[in-house]
């Protein structure tokens, strides 16, 4: 018999009822975990019966929401509920064996919700690169339209060569801009300086 898994979203208010129903039907409690996301903290309760593993997900909680404990039905959940309280700062009411925040002795509160400065910088960098890419795509589309209009206005050979070269140069510049947007600011400044020096040299020759 193979294993079947699934994920069911569930509201916080419906949690107690669902857990009581599962206990009555003979489901075995597997685990409780929490995930830190941008929209809040998700709690996932897993239950298993025969060969079916079902995960009930409560999404988007904050540290002001009060989650009812399930230790009345499943005593072994006290380990996971204390852990979730200590590491994610979720308030759980009514845990059978409650360590009151001292399950683990940590020197920072709710460490799993801490986002370090490097990660913030990485997220911002990813956002910048995505924005630059979008801008480039928009520009390409506009350049394509403009190039067609130029061709008609200036006559074929010259116009094509000129606008073609212009478009190419603009493309290269856009590529470079996209790369620089994603780079370290110091490095980007160095690259710009080097490009300027090269351009000057080319003009001088």
């Amino acid at each position: 018999m193979a294993l079947e898994t699934c994920f069911n979203p569930i509201e916080l208010s419906a949690l107690s009822e669902k857990v009581k129903a599962r206990k009555a039907e003979g489901w075995r409690f597997v685990q409780l975990l929490a995930v830190n996301t941008d929209e809040g903290i998700d709690l996932i309760y897993s239950f298993m019966k025969d060969n079916v593993l079902e995960n009930d997900e409560v999404k988007g909680l904050t540290n002001t929401d009060i989650v009812p404990s399930i230790t009345d039905e499943y005593l072994e959940a006290f380990v996971f509920e204390n852990e979730v309280h200590d590491l994610f700062d979720i308030q759980i009411k009514g845990i059978a064996i409650d360590f009151g925040g001292h399950f683990y002795k940590l020197h920072e509160k709710a460490p799993m919700t801490v986002i370090s400065p490097e990660q913030k910088a990485a997220k911002e960098k990813a956002a910048k690169i995505a924005a630059a890419k979008k801008a480039k795509e928009a520009k390409e589309k506009a350049a394509g339209d403009a190039g067609a209009a130029d061709e008609g206005a200036h006559g074929k050979a010259d116009a094509q060569g000129e606008s073609g070269a212009k478009a190419e140069a603009e493309d290269k510049q856009d590529d470079l801009e996209a790369k620089l947007a994603g780079m370290d600011p110091e490095k980007a400044a160095k690259v710009r300086a080097a490009m300027e020096a090269r351009a000057k040299k080319a003009k001088g020759e």
């Binding site: 597997v30 685990q31 995930v35 830190n36 996301t37 897993s46 072994e76 380990v79």
Partner: peptide
């Protein structure tokens, strides 16, 4: 029990291992 969630990058958003002894503590 193992759980993984992705977020589109090469880093996972969450990885969780629930080991048998935490279940057996009670």
């Amino acid at each position: 029990y193992y759980y993984a969630r992705g977020n589109g990058t090469k880093n996972l958003a969450r990885m969780r291992m629930r080991t048998p002894t935490s279940q057996n503590l009670a």
